[in-house]
Amino acid sequence: MERELDFEKPILELEKTLEKLRHHESQGRGGHRSLIETLEKQLDAVRKEVYRNITPWQTVQIARHPHRPVLRDYIEDIFTDFVELHGDRCFGDDHGLIGGFAMLGDEKVMLIGHNKGKNVEENIKRNFGMSRPEGYRKALRLMRLAEKYNLPVVTFIDTAGAFPGLDAEERGQHEAIGRNLTEMARLQVPIVAVVTGEGGSGGALGIGVGDVVLMLQYAIYSVISPEGCAGILWRDGSFSAQAAEALKLTSASLLDLGVIDEIIPEPPGGAHRFPQQTADTMRSVVLKHLKELGALTTVKLCARRFEKFSAMGKFIE
């Protein structure tokens, strides 16, 4: 699953050279120390340079990078005592969207998120993090449980979209997502949503109606994939880069548009290169918002959420 991004070439070349030199050094065939130090500084500068000028289409590729941390990584890195809860009590258990009780620092939460895999086998089992209706219905069941136990809900969004399949349609993919949007709008506990990788359309929003919506710096969030948009509006999938540009799907654009509340910064080089640093930053940002939301009364919390989503959009009157 090694996949090299074209625009990362200058970084990757330096990384490879450094790896070789360090290997030599570790085997006692030394004499490279000063060269290593120089190259490390150079690498640092190149990473910053490459990541300073990243295009929306390149961001799409980072957001989908096979080494980008997935929900399971975050569960290991920043949560403790995860008690997974299975099933929607109607049809089955979706492996593409999971949830359960978890601790984030000293905060007890209900954690719900899309569940991409790290390799082909995992991804087949987890359907590449694309949920069927039973996933959204499980999510809603867990949110209602959170309401009963007075726990805040934390959702992690990372999906290409809700699964487009015959069975998913039969079991009411549309109704399941619409129901979640309706119920999340009035859920009586705080909801913090974090877009960690791909925020793919209704499948993302189906667990994304948050009092606070956060986004990792190189994540994307869009009404349609750039490929899908290019196919329809340019009638040619090869215009994906143009579509990515036009759709304004990066964290910076979404902050401008008022759709997200805060960007969680990633080190230059991205979360796929610095998973632990990214996770640590995320942990502190999420905790900060949980504490703030925890101070609001239920009435105030629900009124704020209603106002927040009522204000979404731009039109002329």
Binding site: G202, L247, V259, F309, K314
Partner: peptide, 9 residues
């Protein structure tokens, strides 16, 4: 774009 998606919520 995303503002259209937000109309669903």
């Amino acid at each position: 774009g995303i503002l259209s998606l937000m109309q669903m919520a």
